[in-house]
């Protein structure tokens, strides 16, 4: 399943970059960073790792203030 997920991301990423008219290295860098970030989070979710909610920090902060 994990390998399938990586392959799917790789396929989408390569296909998208292949279709670009101009292949700017900065654009590829940002595109890759975002895609890899998403892949890591998806993989962690797939492996059942308990990831704390990214908004939990704001919640704690607001509740402590009120």
């Amino acid at each position: 399943m994990f390998i399938l997920l990586v392959l799917a991301y790789l396929l989408v990423g390569c296909a998208e970059v292949f279709l670009w008219e101009t292949k700017d290295i900065r654009k590829i860098g940002l595109f890759g960073t975002l895609l890899i970030g998403s892949l890591i989070l998806s993989a962690l979710m797939l492996l059942g790792v308990d990831i704390p909610s990214p908004t939990g920090f704001f919640e704690k902060l607001i509740l402590s203030l009120s």
Partner: peptide, 27 residues
């Protein structure tokens, strides 16, 4: 913010990130 002339090239990874975030955001 990152000084690019177009936004369309990051729509796909941003959507993927948003989907992941939407699952993580609440229990």
């Amino acid at each position: 913010v990152l000084n690019f002339d177009d936004y369309r090239f990051i729509v796909t990874p941003t959507t993927f990130l948003m989907v992941t975030m939407s699952i993580l955001i609440y229990n």
